[in-house]
Amino acid sequence: MSSSPAILPAKGPADRLTALFWRHPRVLLAILLTPPLLWLGVVYLGSLAALLLQSFYSIDEFSGVVKEEFTLKTYAELLRPSNFDILLRTVLMAAAVTLACAALAFPIAYYAARYAKGHWKAAFYLGVMLPLWSSYLVKVYAWKLILAKEGIIGWAAEQTHTSWIIDGLLSIPGMEGSSLSTSPLGTFMVFVYIWLPYMILPMQASLERVPNSMLEASADLGASRGQTFRTVILPLALPGVIAGSIFTFSLTLGDYIIPQIIGNSANFIGMAVYQLQGTAGNIPLAAAFAVVPILIMLIYLAIARRMGAFDAL
């Protein structure tokens, strides 16, 4: 029996490289990480830096040319009543959408987490996943069909002689419109519909981790259904609700397609950014508007982190 070395000798460059990776794992790590980090670092972080830079420039009011020198003038413009209204309206809408999504998502998430078994569980999962992933524009378009004056809601109301409910809703101050599709109420409904799945999934994930024994213990101690919900389920599900609210809040904050297609064309942050960079050509102010959601989300994320929402993601 001839003695052969325990470690096979290197035969080619591939083997020599393998030996190098074995001895210096950091070399392999560096090779793996360099391309993606270059991409994300240069393309993405570079772009965010450019955005921040532009927001400190200003536009010359007479020539309309961007002046490339540092100023806080553009940020001061955000506080003008017309611009501040846009910020306020967007944040209020995002908060209302988040609350409505949480209320609608809870029964679905709770049923799927606690009662659905086997095929039903898969059906519920797919039932939430498919609307989440299916085409955003197609979903918005579907609501244009539904909310139009001559559309299915108007028809159903007429058939059941309940048109007065819709007319009543549309005459509430601030909700005016010739139909739901031109009323802020319509914008709100579509936002809720589009972002609802983003609330259900993290909520379901956190509800699945509520042990049944706790619910039994609560019942044994004489709690009613309502008490169990308030004192056991809700606190344990809260991280999931907050995780979901990160999505619904952030997505509503930045959206500019939905208010453009459905609603009374009142301005939202996203629309202001879109219009300012496009037709108005005021890139510094557009950039300053875009920085606001980043700041709001950073604060929101810091609070969410403190409440343990990241464990539920």
């Binding site: 393309v43 772009s47 955005l51 930045g254 959206d255 890139i283 959601p293």
Partner: peptide, 22 residues
């Protein structure tokens, strides 16, 4: 860093890229 492009609203990613191209 990997999560950021999808965690921030799309309008920010879009506007950031547009400023960079500018």
């Amino acid at each position: 860093l990997i999560l950021l492009p999808i965690a921030l609203p799309g309008v920010i990613t879009g506007m950031a890229l547009r400023s960079a191209f500018g």
